[in-house]
């Protein structure tokens, strides 16, 4: 099975974030980057499918030169080769909305004729959750989102999809297909020294965004349908409640709050 995984490099989750002077994005100086979390799970799913059924895993990432580090990480974990859709600087891709980026991605992977395209559910920085599904539309492939589990069934796939309120949906679909993957259902493997060394010899095809646009003028950024107007740091608020009663009562009250108010369990 030939699997393409679209990954994005995003600011590290715990990065100390400052808003840049234009209030349009965060100040990228001093920020460390890592692989978008749900993309890491998408990659893990792809690697597990390859281990079980054979095939090839190709990662594709759109981003400036720094994204190369995340691509290497994916290769070190076991992807076979990579396509780096490289922007010349930090701003070039900012002119595109989700549709524009998906167009670029589609153009760069179209010739691969993959059996399966995986993306993370959404990015940790923008959180639009659209690139994957638009990509499916552009490639003309069936898709399903919020996927927790992928199984090969006959000529197609059987997938588990997360709905709200603890509901799940089982879907069967034919390949080729596009799936966007939800975090947390499997264990991520760790990068190894051997993987990193092997990754050095793996192919990374670098396609400059400008070159791609030059070859197909329809990929030029159009007026984006969604514009980022202003970025703000979240307002922190704290509320503390003391749960009284016997330990058993307090525990019961706590469980109820965690379950229904905070909704974390």
């Amino acid at each position: 099975m030939k699997i393409i995984v679209a990954i994005k490099q995003v600011p590290e989750r715990d990065a100390r974030i400052r808003i840049d002077s234009g209030n349009k994005w965060i100040d990228l100086e001093d920020v460390e980057f890592s692989m978008n979390e749900s993309d890491a799970y998408a990659l893990e799913e792809a690697l597990q499918l390859k281990e079980a059924h054979g095939g090839e895993v190709i990662v594709v990432s759109a981003g400036p030169e720094r994204a190369g580090k995340t691509i290497r990480e994916a290769l070190a974990k076991g992807a076979d080769r990579a396509i780096h859709l490289q922007s010349s600087d930090e701003t070039e891709l900012a002119a595109y909305d989700a549709l524009g980026v998906a167009r670029l991605l589609a153009a760069s992977i179209q010739d691969e004729k993959a059996d399966l395209v995986l993306t993370g559910l959404q990015s940790d920085d923008l959180g639009l959750g659209q690139t994957g599904v638009i990509l499916a539309e552009l490639l003309g492939l069936p898709h399903a989102s919020l996927i927790l589990k992928i199984e090969v069934a006959g000529n197609g796939l059987k997938v588990l999809r997360e709905l709200e309120d603890g509901w799940f949906q089982h879907i069967e679909l034919a390949t080729p297909a596009v799936l966007t993957i939800q975090s947390g259902n499997t264990k991520l493997r760790y990068a190894t020294l051997m993987g990193i060394k092997k990754a050095k010899t793996k192919e990374v095809r670098v396609i400059a965004v400008a070159d791609l646009v030059a070859s197909d003028p329809s990929l030029k950024p159009t007026a984006p349908s969604v514009v980022l107007d202003q970025v703000k740091l979240p307002h922190k608020q704290r509320s503390t409640q003391l749960l009284g009663g016997s330990p058993a009562e307090a525990a019961a009250a706590l469980v109820e709050k965690l379950q229904f108010e905070v909704r974390v369990i």
Binding site: E12, L188, R189, Y190, G195
Partner: peptide, 30 residues
């Protein structure tokens, strides 16, 4: 470990925490 032959849920979690959070407890640097 360097070849990935050691598969351990806790070990993998620890290494990922060290990679992502740079501390063994996997907590935010904040």
């Amino acid at each position: 470990t360097n070849t990935g032959a050691w598969e351990d849920d806790y070990g993998g979690k620890l290494f990922n925490a060290l990679e992502r959070n740079s501390n063994a407890l996997g907590m935010s640097a904040l």
